[in-house]
Amino acid sequence: MIRFENVFFGYEKNVPVFQELSLDLDAGLTLLLGPNGSGKTTLLKMAAGVEKPDRGTVRVDGKDLWKNEVVARREIAYLPEHPDLTPYASIREIVRFVCRLRGEPVARGEEALATLDMDRVAGRSVRELSQGQRRRAVLAAAMIGRPKHLLLDEPLEAMDRRMRDDIMIWIESRIKDGAAAVIVSHDLDPFSVLATSAVGLKEGRPEPHPELPAEAAERHKILERLARGL
């Protein structure tokens, strides 16, 4: 479980994105919905340990993300909206580094690269890759091991059809293993069936829906409303 406790955050002083945010993200698939600029990506960054709250704590399975940094991050797989990769290392070097950090054999990284059809271009740096390939490279790193917390920002964006299917299969299998997947997506259809809960965000204020109705039309109606920030 990822728990936000009284979190305050802003990129600039006096311009808060979140004030006194308290939220629990449990096992299952949680959709993070809201209009542009509502704080979805920022919330995901805080859950991934990319940005530190100005005040308050973020706990992953009870471990403070900023006091127990290594242990708390060990089970996190984060796919950012923009696949930022260093131009000073090849994709293979980056994936191998993530394997080492997660305590996984290097072969797992190679498998992940092969699954995403990246093995042939793994020797290249980010400069030589298309936007879709960059996202696949980051996704390959996220797939290493058996992460218990998937934090995915628009995971299907810039992916071809076959890749979309593979990603959906991976997410589904991780959820079956008891993982928590938090997904930011403007594309609701692929995830609405799998989603077990949803959180709507509007100007930094969360509207959690811990349980979604089983009936498809009703569920879709709620998700649409949250996505539009209504």
Binding site: Y11, E12, V50, E51, W66, V126, R134
Partner: peptide, 26 residues
């Protein structure tokens, strides 16, 4: 270092400056 807001620049400029997600412009 923990207090460094690493994505602040991207968040405040978004896509107006090309591809903020990559370092390839360096």
């Amino acid at each position: 270092e923990q207090t460094l807001k690493v994505t602040a620049w991207d968040e405040m400029h978004h896509d107006a400056v090309g591809d903020p997600g990559s370092w390839s412009s360096i």
